[in-house]
């Protein structure tokens, strides 16, 4: 059987060493850009302004009138699912506190876009 001639193995080893060090360097540099990118990705992904907007419009409309306008309710729910891909629902209860003649509106707002679920229990002042 032929004996292996391993004279040149160190060349191969050096080649590996160099390529591994390059690989590690590339990995570290790559990680550094990912940090800034993933932060802005999560900013884009989290529907903060959507949630704020929907809760704002519901409070402004239902909260001030003390009643849910049927037409506006269906507009919000149907447009949310069709244009924003989000399930939105809300209910409103009005409590009249007789001794002090206070009227409070309690609203439950639900938002779910498949990734983020948000529920708010809001009481008017």
């Amino acid at each position: 059987m032929a004996r292996l001639n391993d004279d040149a193995q160190w060349i191969v080893l050096m080649g590996f060493l160099v390529s591994f060090s390059l690989f590690f360097l590339a990995l570290i540099i790559n990680q550094s850009t990912i940090v800034g990118q993933s932060t802005s990705e999560s900013v884009i992904e989290f529907p903060k302004s959507d949630v704020r907007d929907i809760s704002h419009v519901i409070k402004e409309h239902a909260g001030n009138n003390g009643e849910i306008d049927d037409r506006v309710y269906h507009d919000i729910i149907n447009l949310s699912i069709k244009r924003k891909g989000a399930v939105v629902n809300y209910t409103l209860n009005t409590l009249h506190y007789q001794p002090f003649d206070y009227t409070h509106n309690y609203s439950l707002i639900h938002y779910n876009n498949g990734v983020t679920i948000y529920n708010e229990n809001w009481t008017s002042q």
Partner: peptide, 12 residues
């Protein structure tokens, strides 16, 4: 005998 310089052993 073939010229097998640079080939790797099975151990390697």
């Amino acid at each position: 005998m073939p010229d097998d310089r640079g080939t790797l052993s099975i151990d390697f």
